[in-house]
Design a protein around this nucleic acid. Structure first.
Lengths: 259, 259
DNA sequence: ATGATATAATACAAAACGTAACATTTTTGG
DNA sequence: CCAAAAATGTTACGTTTTGTATTATATCAT
């Protein structure tokens, strides 16, 4: 006796839920239909959110290992990011308090902060980035403050109302902000709304706002806006930036540093 | 029966997480595939941020080359801590919100939380511990919230006024608290004042306060008090606890669970 | 330091698995 | 019963995974 498609799907969903994962070959064996049908079932169950497909079968939803885009992004244009990070870090004066957001370019700022503090003064670093904390935690002369909030693993960042509330209680000399797109008309943009909100409040509590972005970000427009260009003071980017765009940005009153 | 690539990678990631490190030869032996495949797995897992490759195998990311007192403490009485962690984690019900402090025993609670979520409910975990975040960040069905504050590297914890302010805005079902000393007269004690303060506020915002402490902590008095024994409800400790002390604690109205 | 040995990177081919388009069968509702 | 809809099967082609061979690199004992 052959099952209906619906019954078969129900059984598949149940099995995945119970055992955590199923193999396609094994389903093929128990239900005696072609692989195409099973694949379609898995496709349907996946779009219904009941499971996640993997090569060779399926796993219970939430159990799939998701490639962490943060690490991947760190490896994009590493040379430019490092130069930009070093250039931006050179703007920090001894004794200043700074704010670092959760971008991969900002992480390069953290790793290039001048570690030799002349005199006895030290710097306070406030950040929403778990990666920045990992980078700086063993630098003992530093006041390192992590903004709390919801942990976004794929951005290695904390976001949300707690983060905003924490930010509202402080004032810093400089904020280093990353972005996904930067243009005269659209301002700064980023792919995640909660990260955008954190970035925006950061610009509000800093006396100077410094944006770090490699030249591929210039002229690009991302998903959601952080702030208009009027909300920032300085841009550090690489020398591959199109001169006409740089001129436009400078005309808007932004100091542009090319490294 | 042969595993799929995905399952194998999941198991490798899990093993690294649990044990701290793996050797390539050992993976080769357990999975019965060529070294090339294992190397590829490690490469994929590394770029996903789940581990760090080293010559001959891999180590858990974050735990590499950072010999600090936190890691050292993790290695004290590991068997007891693991049993206590598992016993305490079993108290968590599906859908509850819990609070985890920054102790090494509490970290064991985190790693033993029941990962198979039956039904659709999920758990919210709020913590002041960076180690807990590293432990749980890839468990995607979880709401993970990190309390902000000053980063104390040697305790892998956030402390201070921000942390306290963040805590005051929430209410949770259960709080899991670690300590350095526990006694009927002195209550809970710990070596660091700021950590003590965080612990105290945690006991205030939780409906049930569960202390996890191996038997060596019983009867001991640490530097600064967290709360008196009246501030807690349950103690999970190991079976080596002196019976007379256990009886005394029970007489004070505390539920004692021996594992 | 210097081979000897173990471990790692790279390239390429084979096998397993997945996708998409289209043909065929089964089910469903009038 | 019959047409429409749903489900299933077939085929051809693309992708991922795996294994083998080769070359490079790191570690260790002497």
């Amino acid at each position: 006796m052959r099952l209906t498609a619906h019954e078969r799907r129900a059984k598949i969903a149940e099995q995945v839920q119970e055992r955590g994962s199923v193999r396609l070959t094994e389903l093929l064996d128990t239900f005696r239909v072609t692989d195409t049908s099973i694949r379609r079932d898995l496709q349907i169950l996946e779009s219904a959110g009941r499971l996640q497909r993997i090569h060779g079968g399926a796993v219970a939803s939430g159990r799939a290992l998701t490639p962490n885009s943060f690490n991947a992004k760190t490896r994009e244009r590493p040379a430019e990011k490092e130069r930009i990070g070093a250039g931006a870090a050179a703007l920090v004066r001894s004794g200043e308090s700074i704010l670092l957001d959760s971008g991969t370019t900002v992480l390069q700022v953290a790793s290039h902060l001048p570690k030799v503090v002349n005199g006895s003064s030290l710097t306070t670093v406030v950040t929403s980035s778990l990666a920045v904390v990992r980078e700086l935690e063993y630098w003992s002369s530093l006041h390192l403050i992590l903004l709390g909030g919801i942990v976004l693993t794929e951005f290695q960042a904390t976001v949300g109302p707690q983060t905003i509330a924490n930010l509202r209680r402080i004032q810093v000399d400089k904020a280093f902000i990353g972005c996904d797109g930067l243009g005269v008309s659209h301002g700064l943009t980023t792919p995640h709304m909660l990260i955008a909100e954190v970035g925006r409040v950061m610009t509000e509590v800093a006396r100077q706002v410094i944006v770090v972005a490699d030249s591929s970000k210039l002229g690009r427009v991302g998903f959601t806006p952080i702030v208009p260009l009027t909300g920032i003071h300085t841009l550090v980017t690489d020398t591959n930036a199109p001169p006409e765009l740089v001129q436009e940005i400078r005309a808007a009153g932004i100091e542009v540093i090319l490294v």
